[in-house]
Simulated scan of single mutants.
Amino acid sequence: MDLFSRTLSDLLDTVEALSDDDFARPSGCADWLVRDLVCHFVIDAQDVLITLVTPTADDVTHDAVTYWKVSHAPSADPLAALTVRLAAAYDEPWMLKHHVDDVGRAALRAAQLADPTLKVSTQDMVLCTSGYLGAYVWEWTLHHLDLVAHLPHLPGPSAPALARCREVLEQVAGEFPAGWSDTDVLLVGTGRRAPAEQERAVLGERELPYVLA
């Protein structure tokens, strides 16, 4: 629960630090500008708010890891095109920045007030609130890396968030070399960066990318 709060707070702080010019730069998400990615954060925060007020008495079916579907090839997001159109509808970057901060801070407060043992329902899955918010640590951290992929002057996600996401990826995909940084493991392991020649040699015939979406 605490890591969720820190991860989302760090992401919102980085969005706040974006300049107007930054919104037109590419992000780490294929075919998305920074403004498109930031618009996606609005949708994510809304999802958190909706899910936290959708309790259920059904048995838990998923946790922070099994929440994500695993694929060995890039998968298309059916909402990707809509997200781009929504992002373009914001006339000025400050409008999008304000909307993200407004909805994002509300999601942050809702998570801090939530009962971690409460069961919630989303996308035909049932999770404890703690598991659901744990799943979003992955979402916020990976997208924080995407946000700063071409903006090296801005801070990336925290070390604890990166370490936790590495743990999640290695539970799904197996261990990566201990000498690799958490950031490199996440970028290569999710297909965000092609492995360098030396990295490919270490990985051998291992199938990449491992996409959790």
Rank of each mutant, 00 (worst) to 15 (best):
T183K: 12
A106Y: 07
E175W: 05
V53A: 06
L108F: 02
P93D: 04
L12K: 01
L169N: 13
Q46P: 00
D21I: 10
T117G: 11
V148L: 02
L96V: 02
M1H: 14
V84G: 06
D21V: 03
L37V: 10
A161G: 06
H153N: 13
E205Y: 01
S181M: 02
K69S: 09
A149D: 11
G179C: 00
V120P: 15
L11E: 00
A81I: 12
H150P: 13
S71N: 05
F23Y: 14
V185P: 07
S121E: 09
Q46V: 06
F176N: 02
F4Q: 13
L145V: 03
D31P: 10
L86P: 00
K119D: 09
G204M: 04
T61F: 07
L12N: 02
S158C: 09
H99P: 00
K119Q: 08
R192M: 09
H99N: 06
D21H: 05
V126N: 01
A64T: 03
R193S: 15
L186R: 15
W68H: 13
C128V: 05
E207W: 05
A114H: 07
D77T: 01
V211E: 15
H62A: 09
E167F: 02
V172T: 14
T56I: 00
R192V: 12
D13H: 06
V70I: 14
L8W: 14
L37S: 09
S27D: 08
D102M: 05
W94H: 11
P160V: 12
G191D: 15
V84R: 15
L108A: 03
R25F: 03
T14M: 03
G179T: 11
D31M: 04
P177G: 01
A24L: 14
G131P: 06
P152N: 03
R85H: 08
A106W: 10
W180A: 00
V120M: 05
L79A: 14
V202I: 10
H62P: 12
A57L: 12
D115N: 11
S158R: 01
A114N: 05
P195Y: 11
W140H: 09
Q46E: 15
R105Q: 13
W68T: 05
H40G: 00
A73W: 04
F41N: 01
D44T: 10
A159C: 07
D77K: 06
S130P: 02
V15S: 11
T56P: 04
V48S: 03
D146F: 06
S71C: 02
A106Q: 14
D101T: 10
F176I: 02
R85Q: 15
W68D: 15
